[in-house]
């Protein structure tokens, strides 16, 4: 298990949520589940509350919440929504093919 971890890059995520709204909570749930399953030990999640930190949201152009940003590996991808459609999320992150 050690070699693939070294070979595969670490996933950095930034998840924007709006307070403790339902969509945000759902998204956090979905993301952590997904990471545990597909990216064990090679993920990093930063959660930003837009109400606390609107400046960052503005800088990132995040207007719809929740928004997930995959910062690395390149390219940067963003997914809007509660991440309830796992297939779409995995596809976007480029994970589905290698981990069916």
């Amino acid at each position: 298990m050690k070699s693939p971890v070294k070979r595969l890059a670490k996933f950095k995520f930034r998840l924007y949520v709006a307070g403790d709204g339902q969509n945000g909570a759902l998204a956090i749930n979905h993301l952590t589940t997904l990471c545990r399953e597909y990216l064990p030990n090679r993920h990093e999640i930063e959660i930003v509350d837009v109400y606390r930190d609107p400046k960052r949201a503005m800088e990132d152009g995040v207007l719809m919440t929740p928004t997930l940003m995959k910062l690395s590996p390149a390219p940067v991808r963003r997914i809007v929504g509660a991440l309830s459609q796992e297939r779409t999320v995995l596809q976007t992150l480029g994970l589905s093919a290698r981990h069916p």
Partner: peptide
């Protein structure tokens, strides 16, 4: 190129 997966709201916009 927006990818959408599930429900969202305008909370981010309103916060901004």
């Amino acid at each position: 190129d927006l990818i959408q997966a599930g429900n969202f709201d305008l909370g981010g916009m309103l916060a901004v």
